[in-house]
Nucleic acid binder design. Structure first.
Lengths: 215, 215
DNA sequence: ACCTGAACACCGTTCAAGT
DNA sequence: ACCTGAACACCGTTCAAGT
């Protein structure tokens, strides 16, 4: 069972979600296709368990964080750790936090984030919404990451900066009258860093949260 | 071509992403499977174009909004319209704003959101990040919506409140020592409204943004 | 308890051929 | 320019059968 999940995650890491096939997995495990059905009932369950498996590792990372006297600083540190893990595993974007409700490591992670809000002067409803918002920021960025590489970049035929630059160029050729915003930000888009984008989005949410807690 | 997209969207609306099949689509169009390949080069392109098609309708909705003297109020109104549209089409969650960079209605929508930030006292970088953050909140909530209905609810065998209540019950049975946060918010989770959750997440981001613009 | 081979139904995609 | 039937390679899943 353990090795089924390990190899499933390895396949996902190596070539993304489409690479995780019962046949490919069986071959790696040196067995038949149908054997896997003894461990999981369906591909959905395989994906769920594989995701839960890596969330378990993320959870271990997060529990090692030092912690501070500011719960919002701690939330930021935790969210950044999550983001880092998703950068390393873009396929997670599609499955991360899919089943918070169901038992397992997703729930433990959810709890861990939520515990920081217990240290803030908020109502229970505000806490529930705050954690949803933070998870939402992470998932929103994760989805972005999950579908960014457009095959040419994966092939190494063209690097990310060149790819962004190409898009930026088509933006610069748009009518400035009709696309004033795109023209305003195109230089920022060109060569931008995903982690900066994530940090900013997170910061807006955390600022709003801090204000709410101090009100 | 137009009818290909219309029927594709109809299939997606009726039974979600798995229902959109070249064979199902061909049958609806009263033709052969291979015919569709004269209009689109692949299923990915079909999905992209179908998504762009509905984003075009969302864009029309958004352009009808009255507009106010407060750009942040306008951003909130636009984001809520987007959320409403995604509630009606949960399958959008997986594809919404997947290709902002590429031409089409996604880019126009992106521009439209961004134009509101031009009315705020921000740097170009802050504007770029602000719009990403808002889109992120929408996408984050959209993904949540896209995977919520767990077949029993779709079948109508059990309604949403009952489904949430069942989860809430398993949460209440967890050890309160290990899951203090979950216990703190379980009553809020039970029977919660998705739109409230979205509004709160959006509000935190918009509050942060307003503060940034006034700094 | 754990594994297997072989089949089934379904899928996206291609291609040579038609009008 | 537009459509077709038939095939190909691949997929998740099942099942009767083995150890």
């Amino acid at each position: 069972m353990e090795s089924v999940l390990t190899e499933a995650v390895a396949l996902l890491d190596e070539a993304g979600a489409p690479a995780l096939t019962f046949r490919a997995l069986a071959q790696r495990l040196g067995g038949g296709v149908a054997s896997i059905y003894w461990y999981v009932a369906s591909k959905d369950e395989l994906l769920d368990r594989a995701t839960d498996h890596v969330i378990g590792m993320m959870l271990a990372d997060i529990e090692e964080l030092p912690g501070s006297d500011d719960p919002i600083d701690d939330l930021r540190a935790m969210a950044l750790k999550l983001f880092d893990a998703i950068v390393d595993r873009p396929w997670l974007g599609a499955y991360f936090m899919r089943n918070t409700g169901t038992q397992g490591n997703s729930l433990r992670l959810y709890e861990r984030l939520g515990q920081q809000t217990l240290r803030l002067d908020l109502t229970a409803l505000q806490r529930f919404h705050a954690v949803s918002a933070i998870v939402g920021v992470v998932v929103g960025s994760a989805v972005d990451l999950g579908q960014e590489p457009p095959q040419e970049v994966l092939d190494g035929a063209v690097d990310r900066d060149e790819f962004l630059g190409r898009y930026a160029q088509t933006w610069r050729e748009l009518d400035p009258e009709k696309f004033p915003f795109v023209h305003n930000i195109v230089d920022e888009f060109d060569g931008h860093d995903d982690v900066d984008q994530f940090r900013s989005a997170l910061e807006l949410t955390l600022t709003g949260l801090r204000l709410q807690a101090e009100a």
